[in-house]
Design a protein around this nucleic acid. Sequence first.
DNA 1: CAGTGAGCGAGCTTCCGCTTGACTT
Length: 818
Amino acid sequence: MKEENLVIVESPAKAKTIEKFLGKDFLVMSSFGHIRDLDKKDFGIDLKNNYIPRYVVSEDKKKVVAELKKAAKNAKTIWIASDEDREGEAIGWHLMEVLGLSPDTTKRIVFHEITKSAITKAIDNPRLLDLNLVDAQQARRILDRLVGFEISPVLWKKVKPSLSAGRVQSVAVRLIVDQEREIQKFQPTSAYRVTSLFHTEDEKVGSSELKAELSTRFKTFDETKHFLDQCNGASFHIESIVKKPAKKSPTPPFITSTLQQEASRKLGFPVSMTMSVAQKLYEAGKITYMRTDSTNLSQLALDAAKETIVEKYGDKYYHLRTFKTKAKGAQEAHEAIRPTYMNQATVPGTPQEQKLYELIWKRTIASQMADAKLERTTVKIGVSGTDEHFVATGEILVFDGFLSVYLESTDDEGQENPIHKGLLPPLNEGEVLVPSEIVGTQRFTQKPPRFTEASLVRKLEEQGIGRPSTYAPTITTIQNRNYIVKEDRDGTEREYQRLLLQDGHLDSETCTEITGAERGKLFPTDIGLVVNDFLVKNFDSIVDYKFTAKVEKEFDEIAEGKRVWNEMIDEFYVPFHANIEDVIENSERSSGERILGVDPKTEKPVSVRIGRYGPMAQLGESKEDSEEKPQFASLRHGQSIETITLEEALDLFKLPRQLGEYEEKVVTVSVGRFGPYVRHDSKFVSLKKDVDDPLTIELDRAVELIEEKREKDRKALLKTFEEDVDLRVIMGRWGPYIAYQKSNYKIPKDTVVEDLSFEDCMKVVEEGPKPKKAAAKKTATKKAATKKTTTKKTTKTTAAKKTVTKKKTTTKSSSEKK
DNA sequence: CAGTGAGCGAGCTTCCGCTTGACTT
């Protein structure tokens, strides 16, 4: 039977919802995003012929494309309903190309919200594909490919293999590097903050205290002391009391970037976790689409929010609001992120899903609520014999409004807040106050803040760099490439002065505080620093913060039909490529090398630099006329080329150490990729963090660790079989699994592990899905197949060679996924 | 992936944006 209508959307969850609205005559399918991309071979672009792109159907989309083709053949009318933005238009165009549809007749429809009225309205108003917009996307895609695939190989040559550069990631790294340098450069200055606790004359000390701060901050200890001396015996009276109304308004509903920020601040989620939890909520139909840059709410949502607010909180808490989207380059193909059903304040699910949902619900509801009304009272207190005055501020909530539901958090860390929450004690102008204590404290200016994942996203969005769908992946990429790391850092102790005036006595003391402690902040690595400096030096215009904004403007001109896309690309590419050639030819290798000094024992020079496998130290030099080779050692975690000292570098060469023998086998200690370890009988045991030091650990302790590990392995071993000692059932991090020879196998669902027989296990090993060493990335299946058929060949044909190297890459990529 | 780091040097790495699963020891 021939279907009347086929509608193609991008997301399968969306397809499901829309099908319900459209009824029987419509079959709704999804393309799962883009179906084609530029070929990876030779850029996928004909550089000599107007940059004509060569597209191929992505490996993991072949199945979807085949199904769409089949459905398209059977349909009378095909509706392309991809998102209304540049990428969506291109997805639509690729679909038409692949399915053999004509852009002149195929119906293109768009809607910005998934409601019945929006969809029927779209069906009633189809248009044709906008080829200018498609061209703008092609220009975007081709430019990104050219930038990424021309600069990255330069890095392989000049810095280290396998590195990457790109329009978005390189700027993200630059933001972090520039900020880090600002922080290193920063010199704190200090000033003295004076605070006082007052009470009224007739009241007892402590009954109702008034905390006030001096409006002046003194530069020096002596000035502060002088002032406190003046206070000793002075009188204090209220000069004025000023009351001022104030209001607070709610923030707009969530878009991707603000959701990531708030989930990070309020729930402590990394951005990738926020996105995967949101994805689950979306697939379950609990929230609208989570990759959006629009703060818009549908009429349906506005009505539902009103109903919920009025019912739950009453009329006076409701206030209709619409928000303008601020983000640069926003394309607004979707609604804001909001609950599907406003009247559900909570949903079932994992704790994370519940928390994130609640956050979304509160933010959405609050955005449609009344302002909070405050009254701020400022009390000015004069000091006799001086022109100085203390100020006390109190704030009371007259009407809570949206605050009864939700308040956005800030990134500020530990800044002292001088505002009294709540009421001030009853006071009158002219009244005399008595201080119970006056304190002068030395305070230091704060260094610029380091980025968190979420604040980096905000910065990128402000600059119009990246899209909602790429914020989380970009941050993962630059961490995977080891350009930046997310880390905690302990603070350092700092002394400060404190002066205390109490009961007519002035004392001063030196106190200490911890400063500069960081949690979950982004730091550049040595490689990040070297690569960034190389890019800034040689490709300044590309890693410029404004580069994206500049090309976006040109893409817009293409979309408006004012510019031809391949002319724009040509204008960019010709000088860009000349620059590439010049850098390859003329630029020095860049390794960030630092000469640390000379080893006092051997009198050989010691240096550090980026090597093929990362930051390393070198002891001695390679000389042509000498047989002697230099020694190498990797820098340890937390060490940096920029800051490592000669002593620390020399320590690196003290490993591996032999500790002695245990059970007639040698015990050695060293530091590897996963940190310090003990090696014995070709088995590895990690040293305990913060307990053991590889430079000082002794045999007894090493044996202890070895035995501990044996005990743990014994406990994890669930089953062994007499028939074959190679077969074991082991308890792993993700539950039990079967290990046979060198591969691991998943146990089928619903099996009782205790009941597994030898035959059951062997069945899993033989029939179960082949344990893919390779991460399931695009071509993995193809590679696995090649591997299987050729590994047995012993002849050194090119084909066999090829598979060997391929195998290497696949295992590597699987390891990188960790 | 836990001894690597020049030397001879094939073939490999890499981008951004749209979407989900499959998968991890």
